[in-house]
Write a protein that binds this DNA or RNA. Structure first.
Lengths: 137, 137
DNA sequence: ATAATTGCACTACTTTTATATAACAGTAAG
DNA sequence: CTTACTGTTATATAAAAGTAGTGCAATTAT
């Protein structure tokens, strides 16, 4: 199986989040967004570890946890592959979005930025030019 | 010095973020939001540790780092006190807000939620009833 | 068949995070 | 002064996180 799945993941060693958590979130986000599709092969453990300049054991931890959570499955000797349950993806995606929004609004409020101000800031971004990043609305 | 500074901090042991980081962020947020004012005394190390059910050493780490970052200062035998530099607070507050917004929008985009959809979600929250949490805009 | 790649399991080690406990000196209030 | 509380420092212990490296069996490509 030649075609490998490219991934743009940036790891910040200084972050409060553990490296394995950063990588895990990035891959999960890629699956939920549709960047990775059903059956797509992930980069091999060694390959991704080399690319991100982190230890293979850390990638093993990430892949294992993603497998437990049902996002991928492994074929020993072949690689890791994306498992896509359409219904679940839709559901998890919406759930995650609402959770992110809730957290963001809450923290903004504590900083003294009301919903109105938040809306203004978002609106400002909107007008400044919007680049389509993921699948269209 | 009797008056102590009450703080509502909730620590999640299951979070990917270390406990000390959660506490540190909560206090920093309280200062940036104005919940804690110049000269206000923080809860003592032992007191806060007992309240949050975590080890005093962890609180020591938090207070020490906040001191290094210039948010508080210590008076041995008396306690820790808020150091409020008005100009800096305003600046840090705005900086943190923009950072939060950037991260949120980025992640939402990867989930397939465009700025337009984000604006809609915020708008929906706005109309549902807004509770004033911090200092008014 | 052969070679290369893959997941997988294992040991050893360091750093970070967090807990448990104790002791000492400065501060505040009776 | 005495008592209680405070920051501060120290030792010891443990788990989690991350690195480094080796070896084996299964799969894939040649």
């Amino acid at each position: 199986m030649k075609p490998k799945t490219p991934m743009e993941i940036q790891v910040d060693a200084k972050s409060a989040l553990p490296v394995y958590e950063q990588v895990k979130r990035a891959i999960k986000l890629a699956i939920l967004s549709g960047d990775l599709a059903e059956g797509d092969r992930l980069m091999s453990i060694r390959e991704l570890a080399l690319k991100l300049r982190i230890n293979p054991n850390t990638i093993i931890k990430v892949y294992y946890q993603l497998e437990v959570e049902g996002f991928v499955y492994s074929r020993p000797g072949a690689g890791y592959f994306v498992r896509l349950d359409p219904g679940r993806i839709q559901q998890e995606s919406r759930k995650l979005f609402e959770q992110l929004t809730e957290e963001y609004v809450f923290q903004a409020a504590h900083l003294g930025y009301s919903l109105k101000k938040v809306a203004e800031e978002i609106g400002r971004k909107q007008s400044r030019g919007s680049q389509p990043i993921a699948k269209g609305g």
